[in-house]
Design a protein around this nucleic acid. Structure first.
Lengths: 339, 339
DNA sequence: ATAGGCTGTCGAAGCGCTTCGACACCTTTC
DNA sequence: GAAAGGTGTCGAAGCGCTTCGACAGCCTAT
């Protein structure tokens, strides 16, 4: 274990000089700098993280709270996590992975112990227990997601309300008048997860404005659940010709079932998905979709946090504008039978 | 920021006594302990992580290196990561998330700086650049995966060779003589990822022993790639009746295509998947599969690491025995046409 | 020439914790 | 009743780094 002092001795300077070479907080002559850097290389010196954290009260670590559940929107979570880790590194930060399991205690523990300088919280519920702690905390934080009350918080999210509106608009423009929404699992709504409710709100509002009938059905992932849900939908609204799907693990089952029932996509029914682009293009029908910009969200969260840590930046809600990409799963509504 | 000293003063004892109450490394009388614990609670004291790390040269952090790519076996990675984080917490450790991006440098940085006490490395290639560093390092590490040379390393993985054998056996027992293997994307084999090659090895060896013809085709995920691959397979081996799929994102496309071609599963062709159970049960045909025990792997990795950190434990290769669960996608081979 | 301002470097004082040796006190034991 | 052995507690010495004030040396402006 090489220490600062050893580097200093090797380079023939004082410890503080080495420290200033490393941090750049005071000017150092070019020759000294080079000598020190040479010594650092030769000795293979790495500053001790603990000592650094203690002396500077900065750990250079960002905590990332991810949901514990592995049963939903996994690829999105993973992509965000990786984007956060990658982007954080470019700013000199490491990422500490926390699961939602500990709940609010994790916030206390991490901020209390100085383990992390800041925090990114995912899977935010409308009235999340962690919010009061984050508001009080002197450490900056960014939410990925949108709670009911955003005062005193910084949030980054896709504008799900606009996303919902966009989906309805697209289908309405194509002439669809009866639209079914296949949502996330019921548990997601019960937990009042912001994005699910906001999408629904956007869907409903725009549907009302456009005079389109809308039927919303939460749905577990998987084939069997989808089959049951679909049956109920056609039972209740036989004239349904448009679908909006916001549930990755329902996408392929839906397509398979429609095919099996002899309903052609997009000739008989149109499908719009809200999912990462990768899912949309890999599906058995290339899906018209609104992308969930996971990487972008992760990146923006980190950049806001870094700005705050640098004393720049302020509380702010960033809603990314949704973009609908037309692919092969949507087309004009079929003319009503018998007219 | 409450400090140890403040707690000590509040409880009317010395700082070292508080420290010993916290660590339990020396006996403390019940009354003193209670008094100290009371003060800790009243003041809301959290030990400073940096100071602790500096003084004890233990950070209580485990680093987890995950692959950067988000295009393959994502759910497995996510599940492992979450299992690692959860299990680590039960042992008093936090988890630092590193992406493979930095490569071997990340190993140097983390072990050199004392940021983490130990390391879990995922997505190990047969001749991984990081291995020499891990072998030399004085910090313990566990690989999830199996490189070519495991000497001086601790590894946890599913026994993919046995997995391959198991799949072939199952199909052979049902009378299938022509089996096609739909593998991971070509890139996975090019990188010489251990698990893919070992599965293939197990498949081939057992197939030879049982006198079964085997055709292996790597395959990108998605519908189009699968369609092309499947066409080539039936072109080359029209009598193929058994499939082994080791590629989550090829599963559903395969089933859809078979259905579309009028080949019934399992009446005409049988399919065995190597994938997490969740994928197997959510597929449009409930798949006979060998599960990838992601949680178990994460848990075992952490437990080995903790054992090593406690001075117990030794280098060891743990191969989890595969288990095949029969579901609705495999059945007896159809009798050859015309016989 | 001299005051004033830069620049580059150093020494020393912590940051908050762990841990080692010391020691006071209380039991045992013969 | 003294020696031996436990307990429970304290004080002090760091752990390796950052950062503040000091200051030597030099340049510029008067």
């Amino acid at each position: 274990m090489v220490t600062l002092a050893e580097v200093a001795q090797h380079a023939g300077v004082s410890a503080s000089t080495v420290s200033y070479v490393l941090s750049g907080k005071r000017s150092i002559s070019a020759t000294t700098r080079q000598r020190v850097e040479q010594s650092i290389r030769e000795l293979g010196y790495h500053p001790n993280a603990g000592a650094r954290a203690l002396a500077s009260s900065r750990s250079n670590i960002i905590a990332l709270m991810i949901p514990l559940r592995t049963d939903m929107y996994v690829p999105v979570m993973m992509e965000i996590a990786i984007a956060v880790a990658t982007c954080a590194r470019t700013h000199g930060y490491d990422v500490l992975l926390l699961t939602g399991e500990e709940g609010p205690d994790a916030v206390r523990r991490v901020t209390g112990s100085g383990l992390a300088d800041a925090m990114i919280v995912m899977d935010v519920e409308l009235h999340d227990e962690r919010l009061p702690l984050l508001r009080e905390s002197d450490r900056p934080s960014v939410l990925i997601g949108l709670p009911a009350d955003t005062s005193g918080l910084t949030c980054v999210d896709l504008d799900f309300r606009a996303t919902g509106a966009l989906c309805v608009e697209h289908l309405a423009t194509l002439g669809h008048r009866d639209i079914a929404v296949i949502g996330e699992a019921p548990a997601v709504y019960e937990r009042h997860t912001g994005f699910a409710e906001r999408t629904l709100d956007g869907l409903r509002t725009r549907a009302r404005e456009l005079g389109v009938r809308l039927l919303h059905r939460p749905c577990e992932g998987g084939y069997d659940a989808m089959a049951a849900t679909l049956a109920r939908i056609f039972d209740e609204r036989p004239d349904t010709t448009g679908f909006v799907v916001q549930n990755e693990s329902a996408v392929e089952p839906l397509l398979a079932l429609l095919r099996q029932q002899g309903r052609a996509v997009p000739e008989d029914v149109s499908v719009v998905a809200v999912c990462p682009d990768q899912v949309a293009v890999q599906a058995s029908v290339r899906l018209t979709s609104v992308a969930i910009p996971a990487q972008e969200m992760g990146r923006r969260a980190v950049e806001h946090l870094v700005a705050k840590l640098d004393g720049r930046g302020d509380d702010e809600v960033v809603l990314l504008a949704p973009e609908l990409t037309e692919r092969a799963s949507t087309g004009p509504a079929p003319s009503p039978a018998g007219s």
